[in-house]
Amino acid sequence: MDAVPGRLNQMFVKIDRTGIFYGQCREICGANHRFMPITIEVVNLKTYNT
């Protein structure tokens, strides 16, 4: 499923604080894809709705 063009994979995560979190992909579904950086920005609901 990860390699289907146009498909958006989603998941729910409960994070208790706002901020920007950094990581990297851990799946090996293509050349050097496992090193792809990932950024998650967590905002409060009021900011998200605006």
Rank of each mutant, 00 (worst) to 15 (best):
R17T: 14
F12S: 13
P5S: 07
N49Y: 05
E41G: 02
V13T: 12
H33I: 02
N9A: 06
L8V: 15
T18N: 09
H33T: 04
M36Y: 14
L45D: 13
N32P: 00
R34P: 01
F21S: 05
A31M: 11
H33P: 00
I28F: 15
I15Q: 05
G6M: 11
F21R: 03
V43H: 02
D16G: 07
N9Y: 06
T18W: 03
T47A: 11
N44D: 15
V4L: 08
I28T: 08
M11L: 11
T39M: 06
D16V: 01
P5F: 09
G30H: 14
P5E: 09
T50K: 15
E41Y: 01
M1S: 15
I38K: 06
N49A: 11
C29L: 08
V13E: 10
G23A: 12
Y48K: 02
I15N: 04
A31H: 12
Q24H: 13
Y48M: 03
N44L: 01
C25N: 13
Q10D: 02
R26N: 11
Y22F: 12
T18L: 03
C25Q: 03
Y48G: 01
M1H: 12
F21H: 05
N32S: 02
V43D: 02
D16L: 04
N49M: 13
H33E: 01
L45P: 00
T47E: 12
L45E: 14
F12K: 08
N9R: 06
Y22D: 07
V4P: 00
E27R: 11
G6C: 13
C25T: 04
Q24M: 03
Y48R: 02
I28N: 15
T47G: 01
T39C: 04
N44F: 03
R17C: 05
G23L: 01
K46R: 13
N9H: 11
E41M: 05
G19M: 06
N9P: 00
A31F: 12
A31Q: 10
I15P: 00
N32E: 09
